[in-house]
């Protein structure tokens, strides 16, 4: 049954769009490499990374209806933990006074995910008591706490942030080159998309979506919505945290701006722009947003004005985001 479901998805317009979008994202850096334009490889990595952050949020927001305005907390936390491990490997000292630093991604990345997951569990337990706008604002409040913490925490540079001179190695593989690093980002994105598609097709996903639409209905069939939503929230946070890890590895730099409320807003924009609850939505959203930002920014200092007008136009005249525009409205709307 799972098979036939995914087959029908692949034959739908949205399925075609998904495959095409991913193929373009994969092909772009290969073409760029051939043309000697290596800058576009790092741009593609960036798209993949920020899309991944959006994929994470999309699980909470699209499937679970949990409008988190604080996913920057997980994005930044993941980035900071991974960054701190590399930092300690460079400069000595221990993470939280317990762990020595390492350049080994197979150790530091899972640690970053674990820390973000624990934070999400804690934040989720408190935040999920609320709903609607209260949930939006309480998640924002937690993100702000982490932001100010990072800003005034001297070990990791406070506002200056920390500079990492080397990328972590993945097992025995070096990912310091642009193309290998892109493949890692793209691979992680693909895995996350598969996971989300599997999750939404599973019993858990059905429960999560029912929890969004009608909590009482879920309760009447004997499922307590709270642990379902909490699980969804934690997984969502960990995916976004992985994006934070990758961005820090790509930039060789971690700073409190990873945690700012603009970042939460930006991740949310990727999701809304692409189409809420649509699998490929965040990928399209992130790609279009970054391209707009880069292209307009190259032309005028007033790029924020133009970007604002374009985004406003999209939200007013293209309901359902880019996926809605290109592949029709979602079935369950």
């Amino acid at each position: 049954m799972d098979n036939s479901r995914s087959n029908s998805f692949l034959r739908s317009r949205e399925g075609v769009l998904t495959v095409v979008a991913l193929a373009v994202l994969l092909a772009a850096p290969l073409v760029a490499q051939a043309a000697g334009q290596t800058y576009f490889i790092s741009l593609a990595s960036r798209v993949a990374i920020l899309a991944l952050a959006g994929v994470g949020l999309n699980l909470a927001l699209g499937s679970g209806g949990m409008i988190s305005f604080g996913h920057a907390a997980f994005f930044g936390l993941g980035g900071y933990v991974a960054g701190a491990m590399v930092f300690h490997a460079q400069e000595g000292g221990q993470f939280l006074g317990l762990l020595a630093g390492t350049q080994q991604a197979l150790l530091s990345w899972p640690l970053a995910l674990a820390v973000a997951g624990i934070a999400a569990l804690f934040i989720g337990v408190i935040s999920l008591r609320t709903s609607g706008v209260y949930f939006i604002m309480i998640t924002l409040a937690f993100a702000q706490m982490f932001y100010y913490l990072a800003l005034s925490f001297p070990t990791y540079g406070g506002e200056d942030g920390m500079t990492l001179y080397e990328r972590s190695t993945l097992g025995g593989l070096s990912v310091s080159g642009d193309l290998p690093f892109f493949f890692v980002c793209f691979g992680v994105l693909l895995l996350a998309l598969l996971l989300c598609s599997r999750l939404t097709g599973s019993r858990f996903g059905a429960a999560l979506m029912t929890a969004r639409q009608n909590e009482t209905r879920l309760a009447t069939v004997g499922i307590n919505p709270f642990p379902v939503k909490l699980t969804g929230f934690v997984i969502s946070a960990m995916i976004t945290a992985l994006a934070g890890v990758l961005l820090v590895e790509q930039n060789g730099f971690a700073s409190p701006s990873l945690l700012s409320w603009h970042r939460s807003g930006e991740i949310m924009i990727f999701v809304i722009l692409g189409g809420v609850g649509r699998l490929i939505g965040p990928v399209l959203g992130a790609a279009v947003f970054i391209l707009l930002e880069t292209v307009i920014g190259g032309y005028t200092d007033r790029w924020q004005l133009v970007l604002g007008l374009v985004l406003l136009g999209i939200v007013l005249f293209a309901r359902g985001g880019l996926v809605g525009l290109l592949a029709g409205r979602a079935r369950h709307d």
Partner: peptide
């Protein structure tokens, strides 16, 4: 000339463009 909007991440991105492209 490009605007970094006072964001480290954005500045880094522009630097990469200047160097590589």
């Amino acid at each position: 000339i490009e605007d970094d909007a006072q964001a480290p991440d954005k500045a880094k991105q522009i630097a990469e463009k200047f160097v590589k492209k």
